[in-house]
Amino acid sequence: MRWTKRKQLIEAFICEPLNNRISINRIVYRKSHDQEARMTITFDNKEIFVADNIQYALKSFQLELEGVAQNFDTSIEERKKYFSCTMTKDEASHYNNKIALYEQMIKTATEEQGIYAVYYLEDFFDYYLLSIDDALKHKHELIRAFAMIDKRLGKRKFESLDMSNEHTLVQQFYEIRRKSMEEI
C-alpha cells in the first residue's frame, strides 16, 4: 500500500481537537545510496517525533565507538570462519544470536537517546490495523504514544491511565491530548 493511503488511514484516528494540528510526514531520499528515509510527526508545525535513518546510523556508530556493547566479543577467527561458511549449523546459530543481541543493545541505547530509525517503525505504519487496547499495550513507545491521541481512546479510559512509568514520548503525547481536552 502506498504511503499516502497509509497516512490517510493513520491520521483518520487522530481525535477531533487535534485533527488539523497533528501531521505525519515521511520523506524518502531517493537519490541517496540506500534511499534513506525520515519520518516526522508535527504538532502545530513543530516536530514532536523524528525518525531519521541517517541520524540513527551516525548515533549508533558513535555508540559503538564509545563501547556501549563492550561485552560483545567475537574473535577474528570466529568471523573468518563464519564468513567463509565453515561453521557448523550450531556454531553459526550461536554466532547469529550474538550478532542479534549486539544489534539489539545498540538499537536500545540509540532509542533511549530519542533517535529512531524509520525501518524499525513498520508496526506504526500498520497502526490502523490495531485495536486501541493493543495499541496501548504495544511494545513500541511510538505506538503507545500515538494511542494517546487516538479518537478511540475514550475520556474515562484516558483519565484513568497511569503515566508515571511510561516513556517520555508517551507522556508528551498524553500531555498534548490532555491540554487539547482542556481547551474545549
Rank of each mutant, 00 (worst) to 15 (best):
Thr4Gln: 15
Arg6Tyr: 14
Arg6Glu: 09
Arg6Trp: 07
Lys7Cys: 09
Ile10Pro: 04
Asn19Ala: 13
Asn20Gly: 10
Arg21Phe: 11
Arg21Thr: 00
Ile22Asp: 00
Ile24Gln: 04
Asn25Met: 04
Arg26Pro: 01
Ile27Leu: 11
Ser32Gln: 09
Asp34Trp: 07
Glu36Lys: 10
Met39Ser: 03
Asp44Glu: 10
Asn45Lys: 06
Lys46Val: 05
Phe49Ile: 00
Asp52Thr: 00
Asp52Ala: 00
Gly67Val: 08
Asp73Asn: 15
Thr74Ile: 13
Lys80His: 13
Met87Gly: 06
Met87Ala: 11
Ala92Arg: 13
Asn96Val: 00
Ile99Arg: 08
Ala100Leu: 10
Leu101Pro: 00
Glu103Pro: 05
Met105Asp: 14
Glu111Ile: 00
Glu112Leu: 12
Tyr116His: 09
Ala117Cys: 13
Ala117Trp: 01
Leu121Pro: 02
Asp123Tyr: 09
Tyr128Ile: 00
Ser131Ala: 04
His138Trp: 00
Lys139His: 05
Leu142Met: 02
Phe146Cys: 03
Asp150Ala: 07
Lys151Trp: 03
Arg152Trp: 05
Arg152Asn: 06
Gly154Glu: 01
Lys157Tyr: 11
Phe158Met: 03
Ser160Gln: 10
Ser160Met: 09
Ser160Arg: 09
Leu161Arg: 04
Asp162Ile: 10
Ser164Ala: 13
His167Trp: 07
Val170Cys: 01
Ile176Tyr: 12
Arg177Ser: 03
Lys179His: 13
Ser180Glu: 08
Glu182Phe: 12
Ile184Gln: 15
